[in-house]
Computed example of a mutant assay.
Amino acid sequence: MIPYGRQHIEQGDIDAVVEVLRSDFLTQGPRVVEFERCVAAYVEATHGVAVNSATSALHIACMALDLGPGDWLWTASNTFLASANCGRYCGASVDFVDIDPLTYNMSVPALAAKLVQAEQQGRLPKVVVPVHFAGQSCDMRGIAELAARYGFKVIEDASHAIGARYLDRPVGNCAYSDITVFSFHPVKIVTTAEGGLCTTRDAGLAQKMELARSHGMTRLPELMEGESEGPWYYQQVSLGYNYRLTELQAALGLHQMQSVDRFVARRHALAERYDQLLAGLPLKRPHQTPDSYSALHLYPVVLDDAGQRHRVFEGMRAAGILVNVHYIPVHLQPYYRRLGSQPGDCPQAEAYYAGTISLPLYYDLGEAQQDHVVAALAALLSAGK
């Protein structure tokens, strides 16, 4: 079987985790702090806050920005559910922005047009969550210009994009956003088995997120109401959750971060090879913009004939190639349709979804396996003529 994505684990990763198992700390401890500092330094941000998943990271990012009932969060429809659900966790309403037909990222012209209409209706968003789909950055400079004009906050959902660059700087530096969120799920570029992390340049936002990930609890006297009663003393100063990352996960992530550039470079080599092998087939290959360097979490193709997608998908899986589809537009999900979304709201996202298939792309994918993927796809497309 050839999966669409898979973690890459080396002996050093295993050794790092075993070392923690033999240490005094298994939950929150020094490795978590090291991991936070490592990622923040890598992306040129000031603060890092690690949590148990990117979903949790999105949630505490929204909490830190005081998103709540009566507010609106907007995100791209071409994303995983968590990019929208984080707004609902805070009691906010959620709406969706259509995508660019080349990059499949949030369309800045579509966002601008939607903002004009929303301003007239008195329902501007408080938070916008652009998603760096497949590892390629959105046009963050354009989004930041709109944020300054309309007064909304920006959370970059960079779950796909550790190791990516935008305008020659690492994604996650928050030059054009308030907070950036990364995922370390096993199919991502770097893994902590499960985990997420927020980066920011704002110390106040970092402090809020640190409280939110651990029950709203603090032992810092400067955050308490009244005097501390002693070294054992803590206070809950806000509502929070148990979203903490373990030492085991942080140790794995720390060792994996040593290889992030190598991991991304390998993905680029494989993607370039796909580009060559797929040339001439009736499909659209991923487009890379000149102002970004993608982390290439995914390699999605779009079939010229969307009507063949179901047959091709099943044929690939029957051949032992576990292709996938990223993503079903979130605004078409029953939950969000009950809240008012409907087909036609994001026509570009819907058109992209109708014909897309994600081909296998991961560090250990061999060239012979890649040849098998392309041969199977070509045969299926030829059979459908």
Rank of each mutant, 00 (worst) to 15 (best):
N324I: 13
A57W: 01
Q121R: 14
P125D: 09
D371G: 08
I155H: 13
L381M: 08
P334S: 15
G226T: 07
F133L: 08
D261S: 14
L65Y: 02
D98P: 06
L365Q: 07
L254E: 05
K208T: 01
N78H: 13
S159T: 10
V190D: 03
T191S: 15
P231F: 15
G384H: 06
D95P: 09
V302T: 07
R6H: 14
N173P: 03
K114A: 12
D66L: 08
H47Y: 15
S107K: 10
T191V: 02
R338C: 13
T46P: 00
S238N: 00
I328F: 15
A265S: 09
S83G: 14
Y362Q: 04
I143V: 11
A16M: 03
H326L: 02
A82E: 04
C346H: 03
E119V: 03
H255W: 14
A306D: 05
I14K: 15
E194P: 13
R273F: 15
S83V: 08
L339N: 03
F25K: 09
M316C: 05
K284M: 06
Q11F: 03
I189Y: 06
P170G: 03
K188D: 04
V373W: 13
P334D: 15
V171Q: 06
T191N: 12
Y293P: 03
G91K: 07
L322K: 13
S214E: 07
H372P: 00
E367K: 01
V129I: 13
L205S: 04
V301M: 12
R22F: 04
C86I: 01
G135A: 14
L239I: 02
A265D: 14
L296S: 00
P290I: 00
V260R: 10
A64T: 01
V264C: 12
Y234I: 01
N52Q: 13
H47G: 08
H215P: 01
S159L: 07
N85M: 09
G307C: 02
Y89D: 04
Q308I: 12
S238V: 04
A16N: 02
S183A: 10
L124P: 01
I162N: 03
G122V: 02
G307H: 03
L211R: 01
S56I: 12
L211W: 02
L339V: 00
I357K: 08
P286T: 08
R169D: 05
Y243I: 08
T199W: 04
D168S: 08
Q256F: 03
Y104W: 15
T55H: 14
